[in-house]
């Protein structure tokens, strides 16, 4: 089980950002992203300042830039969409390198790229400085319903188990000479998915019985309750507060 407890995005460390209680970090990231989203897109410099803010947090958390940039690749599908925008959007057109592009489309593409990238970067920073269990604890402290947190924790706890089960089924198919080439082979894959569902569900039943036999009555005991001090809250609030300042400047300048 040892390997399953830290997720792939997490980077172990002892920086001040790592040490912050998870609920403070979650709230800070959420407020930051909300502020970024409400910034007018014409304030181009504001997004640069946001990027600087995030880079500062990354530096304090000692998350290397290369690591952060590699994680940003998850955004690539939206980049493709953003690149299309100037070609399909309405409104007045402008000439760039001999191509006729929509001005509104260019602004729209910039808007999505800038805000989307900042959002992804903030989430990646959160995930790389916060352990899974802590994240769930933080969500619970932020008044997310306990049942929802429990479901999420079971999903994370057994996610690797189920994925591994699927990998074993793939190995079993491959070792019998199966190779999926097209829709003709979907039947076999769908049967695997069906079997995987039955195995997952039955595992759920066994897990539940094991829990009941250990005294589970609908709620999990909280062993390490993390409370946040006023100082920690204000330390975490620096990021969204600075972002809010930038946002207000963006609206009024």
């Amino acid at each position: 089980m040892g390997a399953g407890h830290a997720h792939r995005l997490y980077r172990h460390g002892h920086s001040p950002v790592h040490a912050l209680p998870p609920q403070c970090k979650l709230a800070a990231v959420f407020c930051f992203v909300l502020v970024v989203v409400s910034t007018p897109r014409s304030a181009v410099w504001a997004f640069g300042l946001y990027a600087v803010l995030l880079a500062t947090v990354a530096a304090v958390a000692r998350v290397p830039a290369g690591f952060l940039l590699r994680r940003l690749l998850i955004e690539v599908p939206f980049v493709a969409f953003a690149v299309l925008m100037p070609f399909v959007a309405e409104g007045p057109r402008t000439e760039v390198l001999g191509l006729s592009l929509s001005v509104h489309g260019l602004w729209g593409a910039w808007n999505i790229l800038a805000k989307g990238t900042l959002g992804v970067a903030a989430s990646v920073l959160l995930a790389s400085t916060t352990e899974l269990r802590e994240l769930l604890l933080g969500l619970q402290r932020l008044r997310l319903p306990a049942l929802l947190v429990q479901i999420a924790s079971f999903m994370i706890r057994y996610g690797d188990v189920i994925t591994d089960e699927m990998r074993r089924m793939r190995v079993a198919r491959a070792s019998r000479g199966f190779e999926a080439r097209g829709p003709r082979h979907w039947g076999v894959l769908a049967k695997s998915a069906g079997a995987l569902f039955i195995r997952s569900y039955e595992r759920g039943e066994r897990v539940h019985l094991a829990m009941v036999s250990r005294g589970y009555a609908g709620s999990m005991p909280v062993i390490d309750d993390v409370t946040a001090s006023r100082a920690q809250w204000s330390y975490a609030a620096v990021l969204p507060a600075a972002a809010l300042l930038v946002c207000l400047m963006g609206w009024f300048l």
């Binding site: 479901i151 999903m155 996610g159 994925t163 097209g182 995987l196 997952s200 039943e205």
Partner: peptide, 21 residues
Amino acid sequence: TAPLAGLVSAFIFAVQMLNFP
């Protein structure tokens, strides 16, 4: 609810990785 819905979530998460060529 918690264990079963959790395991079904894990199933959905896993099955989204199953590629259909």
